[in-house]
Amino acid sequence: KRPMNAFMVWSRGQRRKMAQENPKMHNSEISKRLGAEWKLLSETEKRPFIDEAKRLRALHMKEHPDYK
């Protein structure tokens, strides 16, 4: 399984929150809205998620050196 990218790290928490606030909303609609919100974030707002994704990628490479 591939490590999560920055968007996936961010959206994991956001998706849960949005699903709780809008229980009838379909997952595909939640995904569209999350994608639009992510695009509006500044580089500074994205930075912690980018850093976490880098950390996860490095850990994955260490644990699975033969993974392509």
Rank of each mutant, 00 (worst) to 15 (best):
M25R: 01
A19K: 11
E21V: 01
N27W: 10
A36R: 08
E63M: 10
K32E: 11
K62C: 09
I50A: 10
K1M: 12
E29T: 03
F49Y: 10
A53M: 01
R16W: 09
D66M: 10
R2C: 12
Q14D: 02
S28K: 08
N5Y: 02
E29V: 04
A19Q: 14
M18S: 06
W10D: 05
R12K: 14
K68H: 08
L40H: 08
P65C: 12
E45T: 01
V9I: 11
N22W: 06
E63F: 04
D51Y: 08
R12V: 13
K68R: 08
N22A: 04
K1V: 08
Q14C: 10
D66A: 12
Y67R: 12
N27I: 05
H26I: 07
Y67M: 12
A19F: 08
E52P: 00
K32V: 08
G35T: 14
N27A: 12
A6K: 00
M25W: 06
N22D: 06
S11F: 05
L41P: 00
S11R: 00
K24Y: 05
G35N: 11
G13H: 10
E21R: 03
A36N: 15
S42T: 11
E21W: 03
P65S: 12
E21F: 03
M8G: 09
E37H: 05
R16I: 13
R16H: 15
K62W: 08
H26Q: 13
S42V: 01
R47L: 09
Q14M: 06
A36W: 07
K54P: 01
E63P: 08
H26D: 15
S42C: 06
T44E: 13
M25K: 03
S28T: 13
F7V: 02
M25V: 06
F49K: 01
R57Q: 15
R55M: 07
G35P: 05
E45F: 04
I50P: 04
K39G: 08
L41Y: 03
M18R: 02
M8E: 15
H64N: 13
K62Y: 07
M18C: 05
S11I: 02
L59N: 12
N22P: 01
K32F: 09
S11N: 03
V9T: 02
Q20C: 08
A19C: 08
K1W: 10
P48C: 03
M61G: 13
R12W: 13
E63K: 10
H64L: 13
K68A: 12
F49L: 01
E63I: 04
R55D: 06
R15I: 09
M4G: 07
N22G: 06
P23V: 02
I30Y: 04
Q20V: 06
M8T: 08
M25Q: 07
A36D: 14
E37Y: 04
R57M: 10
A19E: 15
Y67V: 14
E37A: 09
D66T: 07
L34S: 00
A6W: 00
E37W: 01
A58F: 09
P48A: 02
V9L: 15
F7C: 00
Q20P: 00
N5E: 09
N5D: 15
E21D: 07
T44F: 08
M25C: 05
I30E: 05
S31D: 15
A36I: 15
L59G: 12
L41D: 05
A58M: 12
P23W: 01
Q20R: 07
H64E: 15
I30Q: 05
Q20H: 07
K54M: 10
H26V: 07
S28E: 13
E37K: 08
D51R: 03
A6Y: 01
R12D: 14
L34H: 01
L56F: 04
E21Q: 09
H60R: 10
P23I: 05
K24I: 08
L40C: 12
L41E: 03
W38V: 01
F49W: 07
S42A: 05
L41T: 02
D66C: 10
K17M: 06
R15P: 05
Q20E: 15
V9D: 03
M4N: 08
E29I: 03
R2Q: 14
R15Q: 11
F7M: 05
K62E: 14
K46L: 00
H26M: 10
T44V: 12
I50F: 13
R12F: 14
S11P: 00
T44D: 13
Q20M: 10
I30G: 01
E29Q: 06
M8C: 07
A36G: 01
K17H: 06
H26T: 15
P48D: 00
W10F: 07
M4R: 01
I50R: 12
S42G: 06
F49R: 00
I30A: 04
L34K: 00
E63D: 12
L40D: 09
F49C: 02
R57G: 11
E52I: 03
N5T: 15
H64Y: 10
H64P: 11
R16C: 14
P48N: 00
A19V: 12
Q20I: 08
K68T: 12
Q20W: 04
E52W: 01
A19I: 13
M61T: 13
N22V: 02
E43W: 07
H26N: 15
R47N: 04
A53K: 00
E43H: 09
M18P: 00
A36K: 14
E43V: 05
P3W: 02
K39S: 10
L34F: 02
R55P: 03
M4H: 04
N5S: 11
F49H: 06
P48H: 03
K17V: 08
K32T: 09
S31Q: 12
N27T: 10
W10T: 03
H60C: 13
F49I: 01
K24M: 12
K1P: 06
A36M: 02
R2E: 15
R55E: 07
E21I: 03
S42E: 02
M18L: 13
L40I: 07
K24E: 15
Q14I: 06
E37C: 02
P3A: 09
R57Y: 07
K68Y: 07
L41Q: 00
K68D: 15
E45A: 07
A19H: 07
L56K: 05
W10N: 09
K46Q: 05
L56Q: 11
W10A: 02
G13C: 10
S11L: 02
A6H: 01
M25F: 07
K32S: 11
W10G: 01
N22H: 13
A53Y: 01
K46S: 01
E63G: 08
I50L: 08
A58Q: 12
A19N: 15
P65W: 10
E21N: 07
D66H: 08
L40V: 10
L40T: 10
W10M: 05
A58E: 10
I50W: 06
A58S: 13
M25L: 10
T44I: 11
E45W: 00
M25Y: 03
V9S: 02
Q14K: 08
K32H: 07
K46C: 03
P3R: 08
K39V: 09
K54R: 11
R47C: 02
E43K: 05
W10L: 01
V9M: 08
K68M: 11
G35L: 14
E52D: 04
